[in-house]
Computed example of a mutant assay.
Amino acid sequence: MGTIMQRKKKDGSLSYTAVIRKKKGGKVVLTLSETFPSHQAAKRWMRNAERDLKGKNAVERAIADRHRKTWADVIQDYSDASPKGFGKTKTANLAYLQRLDFGKIAVEDTDDHVFFTLAQDLLKGVQARPADPREDSPEHYTLKPRLPQTVNSYMATLRTVVLYGGPISNITMPIQAFETAILSLRHQDMVARSDRRTRRPSLEELDRLLTYFYARYQANSRCVPMHKIIGAAITLAHRQKALCSLPWVDVDETRARIQIRNMKHPRRTQGNNVTTWVTEEGLKIILSMPRDRDRVFPYNADAVSRLFTDACKIVGIVDLHFHDLRHEAISRFFETGLGGGSRDIIMRYTGHSPDGSLSRYIHVEQVGDKYADWKWWPVLFAPL
């Protein structure tokens, strides 16, 4: 029989690790262990595992299985082999797939049904074990259903491992089985591409936000000057992470250029440093910031996004994301005919490549500049 070890976690709750050891000739030849949030779950796993190991040659097969590559193994190999790493979303998706039960499945035992079941579980809201074992609890595994677009993100990330991870792990990948599963998932509407957003803020909505944030900053200058960051977003057309990462050394005031390091890209974010042109208003906002820190906007990008979302709720603005300000900026570039309205010139400001996704940001609503004589320009241009 195996043993169950009880451990008290930092939050005061208990975890239970079931351990099974098999010996041959006095030596341990196989060790199996799993950790569970309840003693009952650990006992059930141990009972089932002991039963499975009683079959003919079951121990030998289990030993052989320990040397086979699982999906957690090949995902790790794939990640370790990348010299530049991956973006935030892909890294998180890969780590999550490793922690799911799917990560324990041997690659050679994977068929199209395994891939289909993985997506089905993700859609239902099956939760992987937490990255921090101290956060493990029965409540953690409560189903949290996901949208087909979210499932599609996980499956698209896994597809890169299926397509390119074979030579890295020296294993034959079930590419055809994966593609067959995806066809069925699309047919059943279990995976779907993200809806194309066309949301732009109105001047009235921006007035509400800037009034709120400017008053907040005037009351306490230690607050993040969100009015400046919003102004930068609608004049520079960059994401909050790019804005908050911009160092002063990458600002060329004379030529009105900035360099965006590791600009987000579907295939090569790391090392994708792009020099972009800067609008006159954007440069004025940059130069209005103090130079007492290494970065122009020395704030946490996640905090900026959270502050923006919270403010929208406070001032009564529905369904507006910080990223929508990038849509606003690029659409305005076309409405005002920036650079003569040339797509090639506007890409110099946005940082898109000719084969990039510029079109998804263009939602032209008028001809001309709705920001002409905007009352907020003096505030945004004033030294902080």
Rank of each mutant, 00 (worst) to 15 (best):
F36V: 05
K23I: 00
R47Q: 14
S82V: 08
S38V: 12
R68F: 00
P83R: 09
R68P: 01
K56Y: 09
L53N: 06
D77P: 05
S82T: 06
S79E: 15
S15I: 08
K24W: 01
G55S: 15
K23G: 09
I20G: 01
P83Y: 12
G26E: 13
A41I: 12
T35N: 00
A49I: 10
P83M: 08
A58F: 05
G26A: 11
R44P: 06
L53D: 11
S82Y: 02
T70D: 14
S79G: 10
G25F: 02
V28G: 08
D65N: 10
N48Y: 07
A18W: 01
S13R: 15
R47L: 14
A72D: 15
K54C: 07
D11M: 08
D80P: 10
R51S: 15
T70I: 11
V74A: 14
P83G: 05
D80A: 11
K22S: 12
G25Q: 02
P83D: 13
R21L: 04
N48D: 15
A58G: 04
K43L: 09
Q76R: 15
E34H: 09
V28K: 03
P83E: 13
R51W: 03
V29H: 04
H39S: 11
D73K: 07
W45Q: 03
A62S: 05
V74D: 01
W71Y: 08
P83N: 06
V19I: 11
K27W: 01
L32D: 02
D52A: 12
L32Q: 06
D77A: 08
A81H: 00
F36A: 11
D80Q: 06
I63R: 08
P37K: 07
V28P: 03
D80Y: 04
A49S: 13
V19L: 11
R66L: 04
T31F: 00
H39D: 12
G85H: 08
R61V: 15
A64K: 10
Q40A: 08
S33N: 04
T35Y: 06
D80N: 11
K27D: 05
G85V: 05
D52T: 07
G26H: 14
H67E: 14
S33H: 04
L30A: 04
N57M: 14
A49Y: 08
T31L: 00
N57P: 07
W45S: 03
Q76M: 12
A72M: 06
N57C: 08
R61L: 13
G55L: 10
S13N: 12
E50R: 02
G55V: 14
Y78A: 03
R61Y: 11
A42E: 04
K27E: 05
K54R: 15
L30S: 06
L30Q: 07
M46R: 00
R61K: 15
P37W: 01
M46P: 00
D52S: 15
L32M: 05
Q40G: 04
V19A: 10
